[in-house]
Design a protein around this nucleic acid. Sequence first.
DNA 1: CGATTGAACAGTTTATATATTAGTCAGGCT
DNA 2: AGCCTGACTAATATATAAACTGTTCAATCG
Lengths: 213, 213
Amino acid sequence: MPTTNLDETARQILAAASRRFLHYGYKKTTMSEIADDCNMSSGNLYRYFPSKLDIAEMFVRVLRGEQVDNLRTVLDAPGRSPSQKVRDFFLLKFKLAYERFHDNAKAFELSSELILERPKVALEWENAEGRVLGEILSEGNADGSFAIDNVPAITKILQNAAYRFTSPAVFHETDEEVLAAELNGVIDLVLDGFAWRSAHRDHGKAAAVGSRS
Amino acid sequence: MPTTNLDETARQILAAASRRFLHYGYKKTTMSEIADDCNMSSGNLYRYFPSKLDIAEMFVRVLRGEQVDNLRTVLDAPGRSPSQKVRDFFLLKFKLAYERFHDNAKAFELSSELILERPKVALEWENAEGRVLGEILSEGNADGSFAIDNVPAITKILQNAAYRFTSPAVFHETDEEVLAAELNGVIDLVLDGFAWRSAHRDHGKAAAVGSRS
DNA sequence: CGATTGAACAGTTTATATATTAGTCAGGCT
DNA sequence: AGCCTGACTAATATATAAACTGTTCAATCG
């Protein structure tokens, strides 16, 4: 969702709003202030965005686009194996989220507010990142590193296993080094799981499911 | 933390408070009401508990004791392999948490309030459950199912990987069947990781750590 | 006539006053 | 003495009033 889709005026509004959202918080920036920054009346904002919340949503959509582009560089990194790329993906994702939310109450507020009112945005974010992760897994299937028959399902499983390291609420408590080390531990284990499945590709999945009783 | 440690009167207070906490919520039950239920004065409550929050803490400690006892039954279940017990452990833990918090705003409020003011209680809860999980892992080491050299570290990793299915905040959104299925997916994968490590027990850990670069 | 404004409205937030509650303690009861 | 009480206080919560903000739209502008 690049800004280039937007009218010049809409982009100006979005820029002014984003600045205020991050500096003063979502609730404390008023439509009049945004309008003043753009030298227009508050009523005129509604010719470009249906509501204040939609400005915030667009802001997050742009941010998501940048983050997904950023994560996609992991895919194109030369000389990295698919396993390494899985690790790179989650460590980068964690680092970006940590830097965004840690000691940044305003960003956290904007995120919470938007997720509360527009839960779909969070799901779309997860899915967009999941698509990148899925490409890494497919690459691993192609070169024989992995043996994943249902890429979207495994993508979801990985996202679930790493949930603790993507949830903004945790970032206030623990510090980055500790969390990164713990994330590496989880990744070590799931990559070993992939290794096992890759070595037992014929009957691996059926056996695993069957053993659940 | 069994109630048998407590004075008879303290147990009566705890029972009355627990009933009100769960029925009306923590903030909305007053010390006077608890005292009335026990046919005593509000001042007398402070001879048995230092503060209202300490009553809540004791309530949660008792609950934790019951939950840990409950989870411990997984350990003693006959005819279950260590792998199956790992799965049983997390599915039971998830089920207990889900039933406690889903559609139960009062329990959620009590939990949130206590965790906010007494974060240590949450850590102790995690550690107490971790000890049970650790015993399952050790059992797996003993019978050759697993090859875990650092049980506490792996315990933490498993708890991290299952974090999503233990965090009360999630239970409002999704429904139980879906979450249980996703949890099973995560467990399938980590158990396959154990299988791989067990099959490569000599050099497994060093290789995994070394491959992180 | 399309683009823009800003006053008006309904809903919400904030400020203020009032009421309630957690926790204390000097005294009463047994 | 050892328990217990209930009025008291500081702090918190609730209720009420005042101010503000998101959104609309008839009037204005270019």
